[in-house]
């Protein structure tokens, strides 16, 4: 479970998050929607404990500020901008992050198989396409079998075919009972993967109502309906 309570964060005088509160239940899949610069990535990085913030975030009961290592052990994170050292081999990258997750021994091919990168284990990271790097990031996020996944712009670098196989994989992961929090601009991804969608507008979180309009500023757990009922996820306007 992820508990976010009244999180505020700013870069200097720019307020990026203004009192965001959200509870993500175990096994739930939540989409974060919003325009570029709305604060989706910043919220995700606050959940991982990378950014400091005011308020409270607990992951699986662990406070990300005071017990960050334990909290992050429960999380797999796929960033928006894929960042690996270019001259690293794919297998080296997997082994490195596996060691940081405390994995005793890692079968690199078994890690890369689900993301269809098994054949590229010995390739340099710089030789991979954007989509392949994204799949590598997912493979690394899945190291140690974390129960929660954070995916930032989950298919931004993928072509149509790659996106379909990536979404199928995420559906499988969701079917296994994994908790997903993902940021996306694509309606079809939100409709396919999310139990509910939340809009971030000017750093504040709004829950989507069935008609696509904004209910009230979050927290608004009771009135949120399943995203499946939403025919068209419209861009909300602040109430």
């Amino acid at each position: 479970m992820i508990d976010i309570l009244d999180v505020r964060m700013s870069f200097g005088s720019l307020h990026v998050l203004r009192g965001v509160s959200l509870r993500v239940a175990e096994g739930e899949s939540v989409a974060l929607c919003g325009t570029n610069g709305a604060g989706k990535s910043t919220l995700m990085q606050c959940i991982t404990g990378v950014h400091s913030f005011r308020g409270s975030i607990r992951v699986g009961g662990f406070d990300v500020r005071t017990d960050g290592k334990r909290a992050r052990r429960l999380l797999g994170y796929v960033p928006q901008e894929l960042a690996f050292r270019d001259d690293m081999r794919v297998s080296e990258a997997v082994r490195f992050y596996a060691a940081l997750r405390g994995l005793r021994s890692t079968d690199v091919r078994a890690v890369l198989r689900p993301v269809l990168l098994e054949e590229h284990a010995q390739a340099r990271v710089r030789a991979l396409s954007g989509g392949m790097k994204q799949r590598l990031a997912l493979a690394i996020a899945l190291l140690g079998d974390p129960p929660m996944l954070l995916l930032d712009e989950l298919s931004s670098s993928l072509d149509i075919e790659g996106r379909e196989s990536f979404l199928r994989l995420l559906m499988e992961l969701r079917g296994e009972g994994r908790t997903l929090v993902f940021a996306s601009h694509r309606k079809e991804e939100v409709a396919m993967l999310a139990d509910r969608a939340m809009w971030i507008v000017d750093g504040a979180l709004h829950a989507c109502a069935a008609d696509g309009s904004v209910c009230v500023p979050a927290p608004c757990f009771a009135c949120v309906k399943s995203i499946k009922e939403i025919d068209d996820v419209a861009m909300p306007t602040t109430a």
Partner: peptide, 29 residues
């Protein structure tokens, strides 16, 4: 997916993992 058992949280192990990578990268630089 990898289902290996995670080691207990160890500061020394993490520091050594990062140090080895930094050493390797430096020697390649």
């Amino acid at each position: 997916m990898s289902r290996c058992l995670p080691l207990p949280e160890s500061m020394g192990a993490n520091v050594w993992t990062l140090a080895r990578r930094e050493l390797r990268e430096s020697l390649r630089s």
